[in-house]
Amino acid sequence: MASSGRPERQAPPELFYNETEARKYTSNSRMIEIQQKLSERAMELLALPEDTSCYILDIGCGSGLSGECLTDNDHVWVGMDISPHMLDIAREREVEGDIILGDMGDGMPFRPGSFDGVISISALQWLCNADKAFHKPAKRLYTFFSTLYGVLSRGARAVFQFYPENSSQIEMITQQAMKAGFTGGLVVDYPNSTKAKKMFLCLFAGGAHQQLPTGLGTDTVPQESSGASFSAFREKRKRGDRKPLKNSREWILQKKERRRKQGREVPVDTKYTGRKRKARF
């Protein structure tokens, strides 16, 4: 983003994410890696039960990198994006999720209670801009959040990794989310590092009270630490489940097989596949 400034300032998303920009999501390994890392962290904050296949909405699903992370965790997903070029890349990638061309600011066109969770990577800040003369950012945010609340099942979470331009954007976004009925708040990872700092808006759609997870790399020792509740989820997994444990050799083999079926290039399986690497410093 350095010299060219923020993408949101250059053009509306459906124009910014043109063919050239969309192509980067299959060719630029650094961008791919960043999207994957953010998706994995967002998944962790979603805290879905690990032994259940859930139905998830991915907002600003783009080329489907975040969706693939959902597929790898055995979830079924629907993605929405405003850029046809990004969605063409997702089709090209033969993602397992179903994708819809839509503007989140128009509202969520789904039946009440459809989804068990929502994930959104690097998309929400786009709603803070008025890209058309009739756009009113606060109103579009409200339309978005209030309809989103409706399509979630009670107690479900929505996790947005986003890049706010300034604190007044954060305020506008959280205000509209709360007005729409959500609880929750901001989770900031590595708040003291300009480079590694990442922001997640973590929202809860009703249900029992939920503790906001703690950011990574914060100095405060969390009392009711989020880490604890997430590992509690993991421990709930019964032995002898059909699904292999995440990141185990078997899990990686299955994931590679899925990619192979899609005709993608995948490293060959060896005895080293899925082995722990020695820490080298």
């Binding site: 046809p84 063409d88 994708i99 819809i100 061309l101 839509g102 503007d103 509202g107 009739f134 339309t143």
Partner: peptide, 15 residues
């Protein structure tokens, strides 16, 4: 088209 439903609204349809 290409498996993707287009749910984009026009200005006068937005609520």
């Amino acid at each position: 088209q290409n498996g993707i439903p287009n749910m984009l609204l026009n200005e006068d349809e937005v609520s």
